[in-house]
């Protein structure tokens, strides 16, 4: 009987070094190429990221999660009409579609302390997973601390800066924007939170604070709520957000919003 033929895949002797890094080291080889298992693992990670980029907000589930809060909820659209336009025209994603802006004007909202805005960003998957819980926590904590709340808004094809236009139209002193972050191969479901004091159209990154990597394996939603509320209180005390507002609590750090914060605003 013939010996079964040995497969040509060669493993690397230094697989123990994987303990020191998440990088894709010690993959082994066949010829000079990556073995099939490692090759497919990469494809799967990329598939998760791509699916997240093209994912859509789960309307029913979000409405269900927000209903018990007894706040009006408005669905809004940016000027980006579809995902490919959104990806090519970041300027459109930062502006409300005319009919959405008009709808907010018609509300003639009473002044409020905090407007919570939720947008799909680059990962509606992240929003579908975590935004309901985070919004519930923020509403509860805001009420406990005596902050008044503007109506809730959900935005399709939105970028970070659209929150400032919405907060402004809602007559809010501060906006908390929850948005899906650009997916990496290791995490396709990160939610980001961006805070702007005195929101108005045209503000830029240095006027915002960002809390990144909100997800079960990163900064869990309950901890994220605490961090956001800490910043909200500090922002009202100092009457500002942005580079001058620092986190003095424990890690993970709160970053000034910037190009490295994961979300392309």
């Amino acid at each position: 009987m013939n010996e079964p033929q040995k497969l040509p895949v060669e493993t690397d002797e230094w697989t123990a070094l994987k303990a020191f890094t998440e990088a894709r080291i010690a993959l082994g080889k066949t010829g000079v190429s990556v073995p099939v298992r490692a090759s497919l693992a990469f494809r799967l990670a990329h598939a998760h990221a791509k699916d997240a980029v093209y994912s859509a907000l789960d309307t029913d589930a979000l409405m269900q999660a927000l209903a018990p809060l007894e706040l009006p909820v408005y669905w809004l659209q940016s000027r980006a009409e579809h995902r490919d336009m959104y990806l090519q025209r970041p300027d459109y994603g930062r502006q409300l579609a005319p009919q959405s802006a008009e709808a907010l004007r018609e509300i003639a909202a009473q002044p409020a302390d905090v407007a919570i805005v939720v947008a799909d960003g680059l990962s509606a998957t992240a929003v579908n997973l975590y935004a309901g819980t985070v919004v519930q926590g923020l509403v509860q904590a805001s009420r406990d601390q005596g902050f008044t709340l503007a109506p809730l808004t959900l935005v399709e094809q939105g970028r970070v800066a659209i929150g400032d236009e919405i907060g402004h139209l809602l007559n809010a002193r501060m906006v908390v924007m929850l948005i899906g972050e650009r997916p990496g191969l290791s995490s396709a479901d990160s939610l980001g939170a961006y805070l702007t004091f005195a929101p108005a159209p045209g503000l830029t990154d240095e006027r915002r604070n960002c809390i990144s990597n909100i997800r079960q394996q990163g900064l869990p939603p309950a901890m994220a709520v605490e961090k956001i509320m800490y910043l909200v209180s500090e922002a009202f005390r100092l009457k500002l957000t942005g580079v001058a507002l620092k986190d003095t609590t424990d890690t993970p750090p709160i970053l000034p919003a910037g190009p490295d914060a994961g979300q392309l605003s």
Binding site: T21, E22, A23, R24, V34, R182, L185, S186
Partner: peptide
């Protein structure tokens, strides 16, 4: 490593 930059979060060549 594996074309996956875990710091800059983009894909390059390996």
């Amino acid at each position: 490593p594996g074309a996956d930059d875990i710091m800059l979060n983009y894909q390059s060549t390996s």
